[in-house]
Amino acid sequence: MAGEILRVNAGLDIHLDKNRRPVVALVGVSLMGVPIPNAWLGNMKNVNLVSEFGDRGFWNAFADGVEDIQIHDGELYIKLRQ
Score class of each variant (00 low, 15 high):
residue 66 V to H: 06
residue 18 K to Q: 14
residue 76 L to I: 10
residue 53 F to W: 02
residue 76 L to P: 03
residue 30 S to R: 10
residue 53 F to G: 00
residue 7 R to F: 03
residue 24 V to Q: 01
residue 34 V to K: 13
residue 31 L to C: 07
residue 46 N to F: 07
residue 81 R to Y: 04
residue 11 G to K: 09
residue 24 V to D: 00
residue 55 D to Q: 13
residue 38 N to P: 06
residue 69 I to P: 01
residue 47 V to W: 03
residue 9 N to L: 09
residue 5 I to M: 08
residue 31 L to A: 08
residue 19 N to H: 11
residue 82 Q to P: 08
residue 36 I to H: 01
residue 9 N to V: 09
residue 1 M to I: 04
residue 50 V to R: 00
residue 76 L to E: 13
residue 40 W to K: 07
residue 74 G to W: 04
residue 64 D to Q: 15
residue 78 I to N: 01
residue 12 L to K: 06
residue 47 V to G: 03
residue 79 K to S: 11
residue 70 Q to A: 14
residue 58 F to D: 06
residue 1 M to D: 12
residue 49 L to N: 02
residue 44 M to P: 02
residue 42 G to K: 02
residue 33 G to W: 13
residue 16 L to I: 04
residue 39 A to R: 15
residue 46 N to H: 11
residue 75 E to S: 12
residue 59 W to Q: 05
residue 7 R to I: 07
residue 77 Y to F: 15
residue 7 R to T: 13
residue 43 N to C: 04
residue 14 I to A: 08
residue 63 A to V: 03
residue 29 V to L: 14
residue 42 G to Q: 05
residue 11 G to F: 03
residue 79 K to A: 09
residue 82 Q to N: 14
residue 22 P to A: 11
residue 29 V to A: 08
residue 26 L to N: 02
residue 26 L to P: 01
residue 15 H to K: 14
residue 65 G to V: 04
residue 77 Y to E: 11
residue 69 I to M: 08
residue 69 I to H: 04
residue 44 M to N: 11
residue 75 E to Y: 06
residue 22 P to R: 01
residue 21 R to C: 05
residue 33 G to Y: 13
residue 74 G to Y: 08
residue 76 L to W: 08
residue 3 G to D: 00
residue 59 W to P: 01
residue 9 N to H: 09
residue 24 V to H: 00
residue 48 N to Q: 07
residue 7 R to C: 07
residue 31 L to H: 08
residue 65 G to S: 15
residue 51 S to E: 14
residue 16 L to S: 01
residue 21 R to D: 09
residue 65 G to K: 13
residue 4 E to H: 06
residue 3 G to N: 01
residue 46 N to M: 10
residue 48 N to D: 15
residue 62 F to G: 00
residue 51 S to R: 04
residue 48 N to C: 09
residue 28 G to Q: 10
residue 41 L to Y: 02
residue 59 W to G: 03
residue 23 V to H: 11
residue 60 N to V: 06
residue 25 A to H: 06
residue 44 M to W: 04
residue 23 V to D: 09
residue 13 D to L: 14
residue 71 I to K: 07
residue 81 R to S: 13
residue 82 Q to W: 01
residue 2 A to N: 12
residue 80 L to T: 13
residue 62 F to M: 03
residue 58 F to Q: 03
residue 11 G to L: 03
residue 69 I to Y: 05
residue 50 V to L: 07
residue 53 F to S: 00
residue 65 G to N: 15
residue 20 R to N: 15
residue 69 I to G: 02
residue 67 E to I: 03
residue 71 I to R: 07
residue 14 I to F: 10
residue 55 D to M: 04
residue 4 E to P: 00
residue 76 L to Q: 12
residue 20 R to T: 12
residue 29 V to E: 10
residue 31 L to F: 14
residue 67 E to K: 14
residue 10 A to S: 13
residue 82 Q to E: 15
residue 65 G to E: 11
residue 28 G to E: 06
residue 23 V to W: 09
residue 25 A to T: 05
residue 21 R to W: 12
residue 49 L to A: 11
residue 2 A to E: 12
residue 50 V to G: 00
residue 57 G to Y: 02
residue 26 L to W: 02
residue 53 F to T: 00
